[in-house]
């Protein structure tokens, strides 16, 4: 009653069968706008992903020639600490003497190193529990009950292959993708 009631407004009202001719225009217009909105939302969200300058620093090359047997260094990769350890024979033997069935996250030392370079253990220095930096890389730091790394935050103990042995961490220290470019240079990432 209230508004403009003219002859052509009949098309606005339900016709027999409940289908209106204007429904097609309605659905087409709203679908078109909806598709446009979805296409717009993608870059709105994607802009928060790492930008090109961040991705450009995603891989590093490290000179390992100065690391003596039994030493470890800390370096930084993607703004996170990396431990590069030159394992001693005793540490390798200790790691290989453990039965995989005893482990929470079963991996052998060979799984975690490059063939022929089993003495080079490269892991993230990020505890898999809640992200603290475990001790044990630098001289004189506590290495934990299994002679590898020890996370002081919540007491996770890692062995000489940086595998979780005791404490709350769910998995071994992560081994990043890496590749030996020569005997003295390793590329991480």
């Amino acid at each position: 009653m209230a508004t403009v009631e003219t002859a052509d407004s009949a098309t606005l009202d339900d016709e027999a069968g409940g289908v209106r001719r204007r429904d097609f225009i309605n659905i087409a217009a709203v679908s078109f706008a909806g598709a446009g909105a979805v296409a717009t939302v993608f870059p709105l969200v994607n802009q928060m992903n790492p930008s090109a300058d961040v991705l450009a620093l995603a891989s590093i090359e490290v000179d390992i020639s100065a690391i003596e047997t039994g030493q470890a260094i800390k370096t930084s990769w993607r703004k996170q600490p990396i431990f590069i350890r030159n394992l001693t024979e005793a540490e390798i033997t200790e790691a290989n003497s453990v039965s995989l069935t005893e482990l929470r996250d079963p991996e052998s030392l060979a799984d975690r190193t490059t063939p022929g370079k089993e003495n080079w253990l490269i892991t993230l220095g990020v505890c898999t529990h809640l992200g603290c930096v475990p001790l044990g890389a630098a001289q004189g730091e506590v290495k934990g009950e299994y002679d590898g790394y020890f996370c002081p935050c919540h007491g996770s103990h890692y062995d000489t292959a940086a595998r979780i042995r005791k404490g709350p961490a769910p998995t071994n220290l992560e081994v990043p993708e890496h590749e030996f470019l020569s005997d003295t240079v390793v590329k991480i990432g």
Partner: peptide, 13 residues
Amino acid sequence: EHIMRDVNSGWMF
């Protein structure tokens, strides 16, 4: 310039 070159779709925004 970082927005223009590096940020995903930054130039567009």
